[in-house]
Write a protein that binds this DNA or RNA. Structure first.
Lengths: 193, 193
DNA sequence: CGCACTCTTGAGGGAGCTCAACATTTGTGG
DNA sequence: CCACAAATGTTGAGCTCCCTCAAGAGTGCG
């Protein structure tokens, strides 16, 4: 979609499908910095894209021409989006700085988009390597944690692309993300409220 | 200065001294999310502060009454600040997701404010525990890495509050922030491919 | 069926944490 | 200025969690 370092200016909103943004370091290592689902906006950089954006599945996106020429109203909207992005980034810093593999994967599962009404079934459209690079783990560890949670009856994978959460309470507890506050801009990690 | 969860609306600019922002999780764990030096602005949250802000040294700050009533011009400025904060957060995600203790501490030293003209002497106003909680490490590991770098003659601590960088080239080679794909050095890191 | 790719699982090793002791600096009162 | 205590920092030993390496199982597609 776009590559790290290219000149920016256009943001995107996901209409359908899933997009990931990645940062590649000099040694070829990859850090997935975000997954974007229906309605999410990415590519808010002002001058040069700091990350690459890639399609995880087939996607349709809507382009947003951002500032600077757009009016104050849109500036306000961009500010709002940036605050949301900021809040998510903060969450990620805490996740990566203070959480174990088990907690990370649990939190990640809870952040997945729901497929059915009661939110027990989640879509898992990205490969394990993407999840690993997103959580700062290896594919192996992610796989092991999935297996562990399954063995304990907390989740139940349907196939590669779907999971059923059997015990969301326990998952919440494990993830250790109790939000002390309800603020809209503070934490929107559980993306669907 | 302000506490996590309090209602927001005022941002601050550091005029003198050093401020840290911290997030406390339910179990009492602490993640330092940022250090702010002269000219840096913090507390950009819209509704509730997501973090606590605390003085590391004696500080003087200037308050910024932020949006929403301020005009388009200030909105633009806030947008700019948010973008900067965003870029920093991205850096931190990569640091925490993909770097070793050695790389983290090296990068941290390089991010410290300079004291003298040639930038070899850096100020280190915060205690080791703050550095540890900032880098997602323990005080012990931070201390060990400092000792290691000192033993190799790369840095040379004056006292608790100041370091001299003896070999800045090696330091940012270690930190892995720059995109150079050379280095058959002892510190080279997990390649890929 | 066979190849490529993704995912799972096991065994071993290493980076960083925990626990613990000690050293150094800072602060306080005599 | 010294004595002592408290806070902060350093260092060592052992252990844990996750990474690495390796093999095997499941899946998709020609």
């Amino acid at each position: 979609m776009y590559g790290q370092g290219e000149s920016a200016g256009i943001s995107y909103e996901v209409v359908e499908g899933v997009v990931r943004t990645c940062f590649f370091d000099c040694s070829g290592g990859r850090q997935v910095t975000g997954f974007y689902y229906n309605g999410d906006v990415f590519g808010l950089e002002a001058h040069a894209y700091a990350e690459s954006a890639e399609a995880v599945t087939d996607v349709r996106v809507r382009t947003w021409r951002n500032l600077p020429e757009s009016g104050a109203e849109s500036a306000c909207e961009i500010t709002w989006l940036l605050r949301r992005a900021m809040a998510q980034a903060r969450q990620r810093v805490i996740l990566l700085g203070r959480k174990t593999a088990l907690q990370r994967v649990s939190a990640f599962i809870l952040s997945l988009p729901t497929v059915n009404a009661d939110g027990t079934r989640r879509s898992l459209p990205m490969p394990r390597t993407d999840i690993a690079d997103f959580l700062g783990l290896t594919m192996h560890t992610v796989s092991r944690v999935f297996s562990g949670l399954t063995r304990q009856g907390i989740i139940s994978p349907i196939n590669r692309s779907y999971v059923v959460i059997k015990d969301i309470g326990k998952l919440d507890e494990i993830s250790g993300i109790y939000t002390l506050m309800d603020s809209d801009d503070a934490f929107s990690f559980p993306r669907f409220e």
